[in-house]
């Protein structure tokens, strides 16, 4: 990871960027996002398998944009998020230096976003064993058991919206859940309000999720909300042959259609 530190230092000292968004060790040995704006601080940057925050979240926020031009430490799921956000006009290529990091903890530099597109297509992201097992378990359940599973899980939800807050794809500053005329989603954290919220969020992410799993990580009640997105992501691949975050083309799944989309339920 020395290469990463050196590169960050170089970018900051040359003035090419004013801030490097990356990872550092926080209190209790936990990894946390880092915003490095002085070359001498670049040494605290690190990257390893525990770095799970999706840093793409910070790339379009006013608070970080105000500092100046950014560089970002980007594991594969951040790379995908960057591509999605670019197709949704939330990021501009010339305002960002992308420091890719591979699962083997190697630094890759990208001359442009086109190169990111090529790279992510050549490097599929595998699901974590734990998540794969959970999905298998859910798929093996009867539908009523799945209902019960999610009802139990959602009963824990306190509507803190950490899942939304940590997700770079929740880029709206006014979410449907904040809308009260009509009150699409009930304010309270009761069974119906929680169910409506998680269903709506999963739908709004369908075809736009970079499968980072950060929403599940962020949940203080340990609800595996990310599995909703993971599963629909697999289903979407089966139905439409596409995955989000692999293209710079502006063709989001639910913004487009094909006359030969194949379903088996419309009479």
């Amino acid at each position: 990871m020395n290469k990463l530190k050196e590169k960050a230092k170089e970018l900051l000292s040359s003035g090419a960027v004013q801030v490097v968004v990356g990872y550092e060790e926080g209190t209790g040995g936990k990894i946390r996002p880092a915003f490095v704006s002085r070359p001498e601080d670049a040494d605290k940057l690190l990257y390893n398998a525990d770095c799970h925050h999706n840093l793409a979240l910070y790339l379009y926020k006013h608070e970080t944009k105000r500092i100046g031009k950014m560089a970002v430490v980007a594991p594969p799921f951040v790379l995908r998020s960057i591509l999605i956000l670019t197709t949704e006009f939330q990021l501009e290529e010339d305002s960002l230096v992308v420091l890719g990091v591979t699962p083997e903890e190697e630094l890759i530099e990208f001359a442009n976003f086109k190169e990111i597109e090529t790279w992510v297509n050549q490097h599929p992201i595998g699901m974590k064993e734990k998540d794969r097992e959970m999905l298998n378990r859910l798929n093996a359940m009867s539908r009523d058991e799945r209902w019960q599973f999610w009802q139990n899980e959602f009963s824990k939800c306190i509507k803190c919206f950490a899942c939304r807050g940590t997700c770079p794809m929740c880029s709206c500053f006014r979410c449907t859940v904040d809308y009260n005329a009509p009150q699409w989603i009930s304010v309270g954290s009761h069974q119906l309000g929680n169910f409506d919220w998680h269903l709506m969020r999963a739908m709004h992410l369908a075809g736009r999720c970079s499968v980072c799993g950060q929403c599940g990580e962020a949940c203080p009640m340990d609800i595996p909300v990310h599995l909703l997105s993971f599963q629909i992501n697999e289903d979407i691949f089966k139905m439409f042959g596409s995955r989000a975050g692999l293209t710079l083309k502006k063709e989001s799944l639910l913004s487009t259609w094909k006359s030969n989309d194949v379903e088996n339920f419309i009479r």
């Binding site: 949704e88 006009f89 939330q90 880029s171 709206c172 500053f173 006014r174 502006k250 063709e251 989001s252 639910l254 913004s255 487009t256």
Partner: peptide, 15 residues
Amino acid sequence: PLFSTCIGCFLCQPV
């Protein structure tokens, strides 16, 4: 400075 709750993702445009 908000101008609209629209964030300009323009996913509506191809629709």
